[in-house]
Simulated scan of single mutants.
Amino acid sequence: MRDPDFTGYTPNRVEGVTAQEVIQVTSRHVPCDGGGLGGHPLIWLRVEGDEITCPYCSRTYHLAPGAGDDDHH
């Protein structure tokens, strides 16, 4: 069972702690590299609820309303 404060290994956004940058996305599979040059290694995040926060750079990706039906193969 997963810890209720985490989504997999990725922390949830915490007001006043996590960076304020929120990026709206239309897919549940999100690449993050921390902004390219000087960022971090490219990782793929999986949005399980409405949003996910990158464990490296604390950018938060928020799933756009009506988006995210990309679970099929």
Rank of each mutant, 00 (worst) to 15 (best):
G39E: 12
A19F: 07
C57H: 06
Y56H: 12
P31R: 08
H72E: 11
S58P: 00
D69E: 14
D50S: 11
D50Y: 07
V22G: 01
V30G: 11
D33A: 04
G16W: 00
G68S: 11
T10W: 14
V47E: 09
V17G: 01
C54N: 08
Y9K: 13
H72V: 15
G68R: 10
E15W: 04
Y56F: 14
I52K: 13
A19Q: 07
V14C: 02
H73A: 11
R59Y: 03
E21K: 13
V14E: 04
H73K: 09
Q20C: 03
I43V: 10
H73N: 10
V17Q: 10
I43C: 11
D71F: 07
H62S: 15
Q20T: 05
D71Q: 12
T10H: 15
D33L: 06
E48V: 12
P41K: 00
E48L: 11
R2Q: 10
Y9S: 07
W44E: 10
L45P: 01
T10P: 00
P55A: 00
V17R: 14
C57A: 02
Q20S: 06
H73S: 11
V30R: 13
P11A: 00
I52W: 08
G36Y: 07
C57R: 09
I23V: 12
G38M: 03
V47Q: 09
H62I: 08
Y61A: 02
V30T: 06
N12W: 02
A67F: 09
T53H: 12
P55G: 01
G36V: 06
C32L: 04
H73M: 14
G35L: 03
G36N: 03
G35Q: 03
G34R: 13
D5T: 08
P31A: 03
L45T: 06
L45A: 09
H73L: 15
T7E: 08
C32Y: 08
F6K: 14
G68A: 06
D50I: 09
H29D: 00
D5E: 05
V30D: 05
G68W: 10
D70V: 07
P55F: 09
G68Q: 11
T26I: 11
P11F: 02
S58L: 15
P65Y: 01
R46P: 02
W44D: 04
G8V: 03
L63Q: 05
I52V: 13
G36A: 10
G34S: 06
T18F: 02
S58V: 12
L37K: 12
H40F: 03
P31Y: 00
G36L: 08
E15I: 01
G39K: 05
Q20I: 08
L45R: 15
Q20D: 08
I43Y: 06
F6H: 05
P55R: 12
V14L: 06
R59S: 00
P31W: 02
G38I: 08
M1A: 13
V22A: 02
G16I: 07
R46E: 12
M1F: 08
P41E: 06
R46T: 14
G68C: 04
D71E: 11
D71G: 09
H72I: 15
L37C: 05
L63H: 07
R46Y: 12
A64T: 14
P65C: 07
N12F: 09
G68E: 05
Q20Y: 06
Y61T: 05
Y56W: 08
Y9F: 14
G68I: 14
P65M: 02
P4Y: 10
V47I: 15
I23N: 01
H72Y: 12
M1D: 07
I52N: 09
D50W: 13
H29S: 04
V25W: 07
